[in-house]
């Protein structure tokens, strides 16, 4: 395991949002963190990406506390795509993606053929090569999100953390982007860790699922192990049935909702 959390507590004020969480991220697989709003899933990802300093405990990358390593050295191993990043005005796609090369260049080094090749590969992988000379501001939401992923790919890291990469995308673009990330695991063996809102997409694309609730880890394992009707009710407060996804065979959550509850149903919790 290259990336792990050791009883890490994270937060923005006095109260920890993530409370003494320990977990390991399996190498070369896709790990998805799910949970209700405010459960601490994004905070945990930010802590693993060293954007937040732990209140206690530590995040370990390659055997050493990530906060004690030089941030530039970490950037060669660990890529990050934060939630809804904003591109500087007027920047072109190649220029933005090229900035992903930053950790591999020192202040005096000129742009190299290797950098060109890395950017070209990132654009090809994300299917954005034909947008290369366009201005990022003028792209659609789906295209822009792909370009940001391309920037993280140009960084050529073994681990890639993404905080809700599918936010603001319609369902077709969500599937596109997740397919793209899934492909990375196949072609490059990249370890992907992401926070996702949609439990069904999470169940479909995750090899390893982490369910969080109230700042703690409620369950970890394969989607089939984690996504059960009881657990979904416990973690999300959602009454549901879990069936087999007819396409992928992964668990599929079907919410019941107030209007479809059998009148004789014993539970009467409002949700």
């Amino acid at each position: 395991m290259r990336l792990a959390a050791e009883s890490v507590s994270l937060g923005y004020g006095a109260e920890p949002v993530v409370d003494e969480v320990s977990l390991e991220i399996p190498d070369g697989l896709t790990t998805v963190i799910v949970g209700a709003n405010g459960c601490g899933k994004s905070t945990l990802l930010r802590g693993m990406a060293r954007l937040l300093k732990p209140i206690s405990g530590q995040v370990v990358l390659d055997g050493k506390a990530v906060h004690k390593q030089p941030t530039r050295a970490v950037a060669k191993t660990l890529g990050l795509m934060p939630q809804s990043p904003v591109a500087p005005e007027g920047i072109t796609v190649v220029d933005l993606v090229g900035r992903g090369r930053q950790p591999h260049r020192n202040a005096l080094q000129r742009w190299s053929a290797e950098d060109d090749a890395a950017v070209a590969e990132a654009l090809e992988l994300t299917d954005t090569l034909d947008l290369a000379d366009r201005v990022v501001d003028e792209l659609s939401g789906g295209q822009r999100q792909r370009v940001w992923v391309a920037m993280a790919l140009a960084q050529q890291t073994d681990l890639l953390l993404l905080d809700e990469p599918t936010t603001f995308l319609d369902v077709a673009h969500q599937v596109d982007l997740l397919d793209l990330l899934h492909g990375l695991r196949e072609t490059r063996g990249t370890t992907v860790v992401m926070v996702l809102h949609d439990l069904n997409l999470a169940a479909r694309y995750a090899d390893h699922l982490i369910a969080m609730s109230g700042g703690k880890v409620a369950a970890t394992g394969t989607p089939a192990e984690v996504v059960t009707a009881d657990r979904v009710e416990q973690v999300f407060g959602l009454e549901c049935q879990v069936i087999h996804d007819p396409v992928s065979g992964t668990p599929l959550v079907v919410p019941i909702g107030r209007h479809h509850r059998p009148s004789a149903h014993p539970h009467a919790q409002g949700a």
Binding site: A75, M81, P82, A152
Partner: peptide, 9 residues
Amino acid sequence: DVATGLGVS
């Protein structure tokens, strides 16, 4: 956030 991810503190 992106800057930290790219190793610029």
